[in-house]
Design a protein around this nucleic acid. Structure first.
Lengths: 255, 255
DNA sequence: CGGCTTTTTGATGTCCGTCAATCAGTGTGG
DNA sequence: CCACACTGATTGACGGACATCAAAAAGCCG
């Protein structure tokens, strides 16, 4: 049995420099306005939105559904690098890349809008938009670093706790939910590819979370039963979004 | 015994959009020029250059030595998120962050120059510099994603191969070396924290690389004995910098 | 109801972590 | 100059977390 990871380091939310936070807010509005002028596209489940080899790929605004950024190995193994939720603006770094180098795939039916790289570069002339784009990449980087730390040092149980709480915080932050219950349009196989474990192990870990009365995950439905206890588990890594400061580290589980 | 990971996916180097590659080059020159106006600082081994909680931290240009970006957990475990080599410009995203959220620590005696966040924001008014800053974060992100994929899906042997080759390519790319031999100012403990394994396992993996005549790592000295075979191992992940396209995937080791 | 995908469970093996001890290199002070 | 401490590297024994293999159960859809 895993031991819950007692809180780990200065738990800090991501925050932007005061001097630019106003700009970033304005830039967000301007950028979204630009996106809304573009037509809505839709993608069926398991179809590619952007391929790793596409030339000068666009940035995306996810309207509804869940998209994945993934890297598939020749031998069939796959790593899911990031998960994209509704209202997310993603891939703004495409403004500067010749190729995306990763696949963006719909995990459920997805509605999205696109902004071509050239248009993005043109918009960047407005400093607020440039600031927002920078903030977006900083945020993505921060989440990526966080998961890297988790992958290298936490066991499957803790990674799963971190993952569920991370999705919950993101959905709550954007106002998409207000109770700790949501639809997660991912198969256990995909969760496994995201957390670096097999589908089989995902199933076992979810059973243990259920037994520990921390969370119920049945098919696509996630119900977090004890947010506080779950948060204590992952207290060592900063929360995904500005959130009330985490409570005391506590040891909820003994070997 | 590990099996060498047969090549994995479309192996592609990072490349920038043609429309901005000229700007990025110019921006690089301008940005470095700005750095060179700042005084050189030095940090002793194991001392912090930037702390996770520093307010509005600066960006850095590494002049000599090796620095680490790390996240230390309460229980003492540590994840080394990134490795910074001479000539690297790092942490430009600090221009927009209230706090760094990670520690930057000298792994060897380090000489570096700093550019404060406010100065960076001011420099960004020049589109070429903005482009270069964006390119830098895109590059860091790309390396981070690559390592995330490795951490979630490759075993220790393959991760080590990827790591050694990655450092080699970066050093060669910047002209710091031209033969597959270099000083790596990291302890095995630090390598372990970077690759998500224990110091003890690092030692065992390095022994196996030695037995397989792929690489010698003795103390701080790394000698890659067979670059091509090593490259075949990691062929599934894109090379760290624009490099000659990787050869055929080959299976150099059988279970 | 068949045929599909997804989830679950069990048995077995292995990669890698933990514990413990030794060894090599480096520096320090008497 | 040599004991001594200290840090880093190495090795062996052992156990546990997780992968792999195999198969069955449970949803889902025409």
């Amino acid at each position: 049995m895993a031991q819950l990871n007692p809180a780990i380091s200065s738990a800090r939310a991501l925050a932007f420099a005061p001097a630019v936070s106003e700009d970033i807010l304005t830039g967000d509005r301007l950028l979204r306005r630009a996106f809304l002028k573009a037509p809505m596209h839709s993608a069926q489940r398991d179809t590619a939105i952007i391929s790793a080899d596409d030339q000068e790929p666009p940035a995306l605004l996810i309207h509804h559904g869940v998209a994945l950024s993934s890297h598939t190995f020749f031998d069939g193994r796959r790593a899911i690098i990031d998960i994209m939720l509704p209202t997310d603006i993603v891939c703004v770094e495409h403004a500067f890349l010749a190729r995306s180098n990763r696949d963006i795939v719909a995990a459920s039916p997805v509605g999205y809008r696109m902004l071509p790289a050239s248009k993005l570069r043109q918009l960047m002339a407005q400093p607020q938009i440039a600031a927002r784009m920078f903030a977006l990449t900083a945020e993505a980087r921060w989440r990526s670093d966080r998961r890297t730390a988790a992958l290298s040092r936490l066991d499957a149980y803790n990674r799963m706790a971190l993952f569920l709480l991370g999705i919950y915080d993101r959905l709550r932050r954007t106002g998409l939910i207000n109770r700790p219950t949501f639809n997660l349009h991912l198969t256990e196989d995909q969760i496994g590819d995201h957390l670096g474990m097999t589908m089989i192990h995902v199933s076992r870990i979810l059973r243990r979370l259920r037994q520990d009365k921390l969370a119920l995950v049945d098919r696509q439905v996630v119900i977090i039963l004890d947010v506080e206890r779950l948060r204590a588990i992952v207290a060592g890594l900063p929360p995904v979004e500005a959130a009330p400061s985490v409570g005391h580290p506590m040891q909820a589980r003994q070997p």
